[in-house]
Design a protein around this nucleic acid. Structure first.
Lengths: 212, 212
DNA sequence: TGTAAATTCACCCTTTTTCGCTATTGGAAT
DNA sequence: ATTCCAATAGCGAAAAAGGGTGAATTTACA
């Protein structure tokens, strides 16, 4: 039996969900509220496994609520449901700790399926949402794809790596078995290729632009 | 009509897929191969909309193949299918440009549904896979969540930010309207709190541990 | 095989950074 | 009222980094 709490400001939807859950084998509605004004109190008084959370609600948004729930009840799975398809919503919902993200156009059976999925450790997502997540993932995690490597040579890359690791010229020299002046030479060339003038700038660029 | 190319080393599976596709309204198999030895030639000679790609194949892996296809035929949607649930596979597949990722335990109808989804711009994923993606997303993109801020004061954070931006002490002093010696003081305190001994180390740590 | 690129190294000199010690001021907490 | 601390600032010395110039040696590749 999965206990579900509902936060949804639309009265009709909220009551429909409640009815469906309570009349379906294996599901039970632990409570249904139109907003998050007494979020934590409600959840303390009504234990549940899954929260079905609308994003757009008067007062606290579903995303803030998600964050709050995760901080206080880390074991509750949160399933976001919304009509919105915005990158920012999806991004923030995931960062806030949501486990699933479905559109309201989902069928009742789809809802039940999604609830079962989150409960069993999955992350149901409308395929369109999943596509957005993947794109966000690629964009944010790998800005590298199109980014140049500034034509650094292998040795220069090694030096830059060690620089990023916080090593001094002296240490780099001994790690690469070359002289101190050679390291300086490489560093000079790296700075020229990266168009920077200090180690901190180079490290910053190196990390942000993937290079290392 | 969706044209699908299949890369799958298991003969039985490959022929079953082909049969299903060709006998289902709206689907057509553009070709089926057991490996990627002549990947680009095959795809050039047999235009398709979607590629159903196995990861584990003799010779080139499905992930390398995905990368190659995306470089040469960016409009083809690639649907990865595998028995593996590994983080690395998922991560690499996404980075290589896969649009969807389903497990082989998916039903035939699930396959057809997934193919339709990728073709229409979605990213079908088994909920368990989606969960992994979300976790990878959170872990990689936001290592911030649990990371401490090393008890830096507001002014110290500002200094660190400017340091990350590659500014010299002199520039930081003028930007913050304080004296050169004050900047030196702050830097000293920052290093102590971060347990580092150079600007590059501090910048590296600051970026990787979110701080800035 | 010959040329370009990469790697190596050596001086010299300037600027910046790092670190130690000290000290005052003003606000917040006890 | 006193203590704590952030923020400010100064001095000085040693270490490190940055920048110019030049050059030898090795590697890559056309």
């Amino acid at each position: 039996m999965i206990n579900i709490a509902i936060f949804e400001d639309n009265k009709h939807l909220r009551e429909t969900f409640e009815l469906i859950l309570n009349s379906t084998e294996g599901f039970s509605c632990a409570g249904a509220w139109p907003d998050c004004s007494e979020l934590l109190e409600n959840l303390s008084a009504n234990t549940c496994d899954v929260v079905l959370m609308d994003i757009e609600m008067p007062g606290m948004s579903g995303i803030e609520a998600t964050k709050l729930i995760k901080e206080n009840f880390p074991n509750i799975h949160i399933l976001i449901q919304t009509v919105f398809f915005e990158d920012d919503y999806i991004f923030n919902a995931i960062c806030a700790g949501a486990s699933g993200y479905i559109l309201k156009s989902t069928t009742p059976d789809g809802y039940l399926e999604a609830i079962k999925d989150v409960q069993s450790g999955g992350s149901p997502m409308t395929p369109g949402i999943a596509r957005k997540v993947i794109e966000l993932f690629r964009d944010n995690l790998q800005p590298s794809i199109s980014s140049n490597d500034y034509n650094l040579t292998t040795q220069e890359k090694k030096v830059l790596q060690l620089l990023v690791a916080g090593k001094s010229y002296k240490m780099i020299a001994s790690e690469l078995f070359v002289s101190f002046d050679t390291v300086k030479s490489h560093v000079r060339n790296i700075y020229a290729k990266l168009h920077v003038h200090s180690g901190t700038e180079a490290v910053s660029l190196a990390i942000r632009d993937k290079i290392v």
